[in-house]
Nucleic acid binder design. Structure first.
Length: 548
RNA sequence: GUCCCCAUGGUCAAGUGGUUAAGACGCCACCCUCUCACGGUGAAAUCAGGGGUUCGACUCCCCUUGGGGAUACCA
């Protein structure tokens, strides 16, 4: 009877399960090679949490000599967004996450496709048919109203909600009953006929998770929908079929899937497929407005979309470094010992991953970013800044292109030696930070120190300009400032002023701040002398003259 | 409601029965110093609570609490 039913429901399916086993044979990879995948739904929205997970997949596969592929999980047509696939690929590529196989801008790549679930209906249906044949799945015609009624009853009786056991009204329909309903043209879904039981008699299943160790949970008992009215499977079924036939060895996914794991285990078992190794990652969290820890969410956290980092101009390497520090707690230590090695050399392990959700920490990212950027050459930094500007700050592109040499010197200011400056965090901040070098962006931002008077300020600038010699070395230059200050009643050494504040108006630091503001518009900057050398004599004099 | 996962300073965390409970970010102070940054030194700050088990619990078990997730023909 099951066979007839299966034939009735899926008359168009001509391939057999065995056919697919040979179409998608086991991959010929070396021992220990992992096959991982990213399975985004095509909303086109990728956030830091996705990148976090993708990074795990990527590292695992590439570190082991395996394969990392992209599969588009578009079983929910309501979610489709045009151009989403390209967006996903671009976003990930920016952060150096590259796929070996799967959906790509040039179409499917690899021999385990199609890589869009919406194009795999035949494959899924073949196995749904098989399950029906074996009496492990059945058509269900229950209407929304019927389901709602069941639920209401269950709630009233304090029973587990869902379609299972005696509540699965269409579980044991006869062939004739099915035929009759079909003739009426009633829509139906295919449900799994679960062997599990609800409540105290439920069996416990154990699954070894790559990150969390042995997980023990009650078996599934729900007659979960595996094929929707549309003939497209639900995530659960598509996952099982795809990861089996794409020969995924490690399923890395967020912990929100933990509670549906028993469904997947039952499906794998009923299909007689080997279970992949599941790796359930903790979710990245953030603190919301009410001060609660919360999962990063697509709708509420646009600032945590990957685009945010691109727009701010965070360097992809910095983001990777940061992610690695929260992914594997021993990464920072390793990085300290191996400052020059690429992060790909770090032996990434699942066991070192945290089981609890990390809170995203912008402070930490900034710190990691400073350390990352300080290791990047001025030339590369320039290219990065320019590329960023072309996309997000076009008005400064010509400025950057006009005099590359000038900018290289600015970017390299005081970055050598064993105590290099670490001024740069991200592209937007970089430009802001060096903007005073450009007349167009130069403006007076800070006020003169309160230790100085208006009159003194004028005198200081005038005398400084008068004595200015561009060929002075740093100490000659600074001696002059000391003298100018001393003549006006400012201590030549800050310590003298601190000891006897009443003897002086201020100290040489205040004097140089005056010059700094006159020259840069700001009270804080890298070494003044070095800046003047880059600015050049003409511009230095010009700014001082203008200031008077 | 039910089920599942998680729980060490503000944040990320080391720790797997005996430790002065690492380290990093942030914060604060001091040093270096013409400002800032860098660098250095130091400080404050953590085992959610309650029961067990044990000679001994951050560590093992139970309960409570808190947080997260699932409970869809969404993924």
């Amino acid at each position: 009877m099951s066979k007839e039913l299966a034939e009735l429901l899926f008359s168009k399916i001509d391939k057999s399960p065995e056919d697919y086993e040979s179409i998608y044979p086991k991959r010929n990879l070396k021992e220990g090679a992992m096959v991982t995948r990213l399975g985004p739904s095509p909303t086109g929205f990728i956030h830091l949490g996705n990148l976090y997970g993708a990074f795990v997949d990527e590292r695992l596969a590439h570190q082991s000599g395996g394969t990392f592929y992209l599969r588009i999980e578009d079983t929910d047509d309501k979610r489709f967004v045009e151009g989403a696939v390209d967006t996903i690929i671009d976003s990930l590529e920016f952060f150096d996450i590259n796929f070996d196989e799967g959906a790509s801008k040039e179409g499917d790549k690899g021999s385990y496709g199609p890589y869009f679930q919406s194009q795999r209906a035949e494959i899924y249906q073949c196995f749904v048919k098989k399950l029906v044949e074996e009496g492990k799945a059945y058509p269900c015609f229950m209407t929304e109203e019927e389901i709602a009624e069941v639920r209401a009853n269950q709630e009233a009786n304090k029973e587990n909600p869902g379609i299972y056991g005696k509540y699965a009204l269409n579980r044991d329909l006869t062939l004739d009953q099915v035929k009759a309903k079909l003739e009426e043209g009633l829509p139906f879904v295919i449900r799994l006929k679960s062997d599990g039981v609800s409540g105290e008699n439920a069996k416990q299943i154990s699954v070894e998770d790559g990150i969390r160790g042995v997980l023990t949970m009650p078996e599934n008992f729900q007659d979960t929908v595996i094929l929707k009215t549309t003939g497209i499977p639900t995530y659960h079924f598509a996952h099982v079929i795809d990861d089996h036939f794409m020969r995924t060895t490690h399923v890395v996914r967020g912990e929100e899937w933990l509670s549906t794991l028993p469904i997947h285990v039952e499906l794998f078992t009923k299909l007689r497929f080997e279970l992949p190794i599941y790796c359930h990652t903790a979710q990245l969290m953030k603190i919301d407005e009410e001060g609660n820890k919360r999962k990063l969410s697509k709708r509420k956290d646009p600032e945590l979309s990957l685009d945010f980092y691109k727009e701010m101009g965070y360097h992809p390497t910095a983001v990777r470094e940061y992610l690695l520090t929260i992914l594997n707690s021993n990464y920072e230590e390793w990085r300290k010992e191996n400052p020059e090695l690429p992060c790909e050399d770090f032996p990434f392990t699942m066991e070192k991953m945290s089981n609890s959700g990390a809170l995203f920490d912008l402070n930490k990212l900034n710190d990691v970013s400073k350390d990352t950027l300080v290791k990047i050459s001025a030339a590369d930094l320039y290219d990065f800044l320019l590329a960023w500007a072309k996309e997000f700050k076009t008005e400064i592109v010509s400025l950057l292109e006009e005099d590359k040499e000038y900018i290289l010197r600015i970017l390299d200011l005081d970055r050598d030696g064993n105590k290099p400056r670490k001024d740069f965090v991200c592209a937007s901040q970089m430009f802001e930070y060096i903007s005073y070098f450009f007349d167009k962006h130069f403006k007076l931002e800070d006020t003169m120190p309160m230790e100085t008077t208006e009159e003194d300020v004028k005198k200081i600038v005038a005398r400084y300009l008068e004595s200015y010699d561009h060929t002075d070395d740093q100490s000659q230059w600074f001696d002059k400032i000391r003298k100018i200050g001393a003549a006006l009643g400012y201590a030549a050494k800050p310590k003298d002023y601190k000891k006897n504040p009443d003897d002086y108006k201020g100290h040489v630091g205040h004097v140089s701040t005056v010059i700094r503001i006159a020259l840069m518009g700001r009270s804080q900057s890298p070494d003044l002398w070095g800046i003047q050398q880059i600015l050049g004599e003409a511009k230095t004099r010009e700014r001082l003259t203008k200031f008077k």
